[in-house]
């Protein structure tokens, strides 16, 4: 099958998604994990745009940022304990 330029961009961005998902699981600091989640949703927005669905891109941008803010608020309410 023939690949066009957008397909290579999609493969590169989706590999970033895989790395970000694994990083969210392995990172111990919760704040850092939430920041990686924000980057995940940002990459997802670009993928939706490349797939010609700007509707989902706008929703993903808004909802991704909103959930990131909510999780950040929840994490600031927790207490931190050094091992």
């Amino acid at each position: 099958m023939d690949f066009i330029a957008a397909d290579y961009w999609l493969i590169a961005l989706m590999s970033i998604l895989v790395v970000a998902s694994l990083a969210m699981y392995f990172i111990k600091n919760l704040i850092h994990a939430v920041i990686v989640f924000g980057a995940y949703s940002l990459v997802m927005v670009v993928i939706w745009l490349l797939m010609n669905t700007p509707d989902l891109a706008i929703t993903e941008a808004a909802a991704g940022i909103c959930t990131t803010v909510m999780m950040m608020v929840v994490i600031f309410r927790t207490k931190r304990r050094e091992e």
Binding site: P54, D55, A57, I58, T59, A61, A62, A63, C66
Partner: peptide
């Protein structure tokens, strides 16, 4: 246009 009530409400 792209977007909708859910995305606009979140914004």
């Amino acid at each position: 246009s792209p977007g909708g009530s859910f995305a606009g409400g979140i914004i």
